[in-house]
């Protein structure tokens, strides 16, 4: 019984991280409609930005987190300005954007490896972090923070999208970009801000992963894929769906390896995706 609760807790933790990635990915996808491979590397950028600020420059932790997240956001915004928006203006197909994002991803990841070396770094200070006993299982303080950040981000984003005129503009563009433009929304500028927010969320995920396990330049792709799977299972383009999908994915992954040897974890995630796509392609929450 104890094992079951632990596995469930592990699943919830994993789900919370995937939710952050899914939120960012969903937001950007809703507005731009392409599979952005570079979204993953923004997590690494966030993590390394924090690392530089906190460990190397010695800044206060909270300041470093905020700045790290902002830097990731700016990076995503920059990629959009430099590459994607130009391609979108030209009505480039999704294939082109995908390859371009692959190029951005490869370059950014390699650049991080050059600057910081390929080595793995842990971000947290304390070893043997205080573990709290919850419902028969164990969670660390970091993991609790991850859950809260994830839920807070979701609520914050929901508030943003539903309660502000900016949010309305974003939803309008998601529905139909042409019409949004005709109605007078500055789609270019709004898209840019969306990239900033989505990328910032990825950066936050990267920092949190860094605290939980550690950072490495290559950490992006894995996180991205999980975020994408979560989004699709939950219903692409839908914020709440993405979060639900993320928690479902986290739970299935972790409970699944109770039965199956642990090394198949990635395969299990994709299998879940395929099952959903076959039986319920629109995801848990329809658009």
């Amino acid at each position: 019984m104890e094992i079951l609760s632990q596995l469930i807790l592990n699943g919830v933790m994993a789900g919370a991280l995937y939710a952050l990635m899914a939120l960012g990915f969903n937001l950007i996808y809703g507005v731009t409609r392409f599979f952005n491979l570079a979204h993953g590397v923004l997590a690494a950028i966030g993590g390394y930005a924090f690392f530089t600020l906190s460990k190397m420059l010695g800044l206060n932790i909270y300041l470093s987190v905020a700045t790290g997240v902002a830097i990731a956001g700016l990076a995503g915004y920059g990629f959009d300005r430099l590459v994607y928006s130009k391609l979108r203006k030209r009505k480039a197909s999704n294939l082109v954007l995908l390859v371009a994002s692959l190029g951005v991803f490869t370059t950014a990841q390699a650049a991080l490896s050059i600057i910081f070396t390929s080595q793995f770094q842990t971000l947290s200070e304390t070893a043997g972090q205080e573990a709290l006993s919850v419902l028969g299982g164990v969670v660390t303080r970091t993991q609790v923070i991850i859950i809260f950040s994830s839920l807070a981000s979701m609520l914050g984003l929901a508030a943003l999208l539903n309660g502000t005129s900016f949010g309305k503009a974003v939803r309008a563009i998601s529905d139909d970009e042409e019409v949004a433009r005709m109605v007078g929304i500055n789609t270019g500028r709004v898209t840019g801000y969306v990239f900033f927010i989505g990328s910032a969320l990825a950066g936050l995920a990267g920092i949190l992963v860094g605290f939980d396990t550690g950072i490495q330049p290559t950490m992006g792709m894995g996180l991205l894929l999980k975020g994408v799977i979560a989004s699709i299972i939950g219903g692409v383009g839908n914020i709440y769906g993405g979060v639900l999908g993320a928690f479902l994915l986290g739970l299935v992954e972790n409970l699944g390896i109770w039965m199956i040897p642990g090394e198949w974890k990635d395969a299990v995630s994709f299998l879940l995706l395929i099952v959903f796509l076959v039986f319920r392609p629109q995801g848990i929450i329809k658009r």
Partner: peptide, 23 residues
């Protein structure tokens, strides 16, 4: 020390430039 990573940087930039100018 950075030769291999530089190759990746070049490769990535190559893809981006290709998409921008001759997709």
């Amino acid at each position: 020390a950075i030769a291999a990573q530089m190759r990746h940087v070049v490769y990535g930039l190559f893809l981006v430039v290709l998409m921008l100018y001759r997709p």
